[in-house]
Simulated assay, not measured.
Amino acid sequence: QEQLQNLKTKVTSFCSLCQSCLSDTDAGVRQQAFVVLSDLLLVFGPQLPRDGREALGPLVLLPDAGLQSQLAAFLMDHVFHHVCDPEEFSATEDNESRIEELHQRRVLLAGFCKLIIYNVLELSAASDVFKHYAKFYSDYGDIIKETLNYTRQIDRQEWARTLLLSLRQLMTELLLQQGPEIRAAEAFLEIRDLARRFSLLFSLHQLRNRPALLSVHK
């Protein structure tokens, strides 16, 4: 028990150090801190005490609300801040560096999605990813689609509520930016397209998804 407590103290301290590095002035340090932090939370997540490892229960490390907010904000600043035009890769001389940058952003997003899939973060945290499904489809469509499929198996009703939350967040942001006259806005059309894409996910298994649909309409 003493060894476990010492290890827990060291892991917690290291986690705090990584968290502080998320706001470092160096972009490389920020990204590396995010990757290490994601891996750390995954290794010491809720699945740690399973499969005969019950004694390791005291080592489980769950992110508090502040850290969860920081991780979500990091995604907005470093992953969902720029839509890549496929023509950019062929029209510029530094296309290799652009491809590498896209790869790095995909690694960051995949790390965050794993935290949701393995129940380190609540399923509702996926709204920060799902709401970008249509807009960033060319960059991260495969990652977000896999996350949609995996999280649907965790809890279909909560998954459906998370999809609705994604749309509500986008609508709220749009109303705050442009006011009530939004039906002709490009952003509104993008939200409508996203809602259409989400609706197709329910049509795949109608009987299984019926309770989820009912929960959305309550």
Rank of each mutant, 00 (worst) to 15 (best):
G52C: 09
L75E: 07
M76C: 09
R53F: 07
L148M: 15
N95A: 15
Y133D: 03
E87P: 04
M76Q: 15
L61E: 03
V79E: 10
V120C: 03
F44E: 03
L67M: 03
F112L: 00
L41I: 04
P49E: 00
V35E: 12
H78Q: 11
R30I: 07
E158C: 03
A91W: 13
R53W: 02
C84H: 15
L67D: 08
Q153H: 07
R50A: 05
A55H: 11
Q104R: 15
S97V: 13
E100Y: 14
I99K: 10
D24A: 12
D142T: 13
E158Q: 10
T147R: 02
I144A: 03
I154W: 01
V35Y: 00
L71Y: 09
G66M: 02
V83I: 14
R152S: 08
R152A: 11
F74G: 09
V36C: 06
C84P: 06
G45W: 00
Y140C: 06
V60N: 00
L59P: 08
K135G: 04
P86R: 11
V129L: 09
V129R: 04
V43R: 01
G141K: 06
A72I: 11
D128N: 14
A73T: 11
L109C: 03
F34E: 01
F112K: 01
A55N: 11
A27D: 12
D139T: 07
E93S: 13
R106F: 10
M76P: 06
N119F: 05
F112Q: 03
I116F: 00
V35H: 04
G66F: 01
Q32D: 11
L121P: 10
H103W: 14
L121M: 07
Q32W: 10
N95L: 08
K114M: 03
R30K: 14
H132Q: 15
S138H: 09
D51L: 04
E158H: 01
E54V: 00
D26T: 08
N119D: 09
N149R: 14
F130I: 08
T92E: 14
H78C: 07
V129T: 07
S124P: 04
L75W: 13
K135P: 04
Q157T: 13
N149Y: 11
A33F: 02
K145I: 03
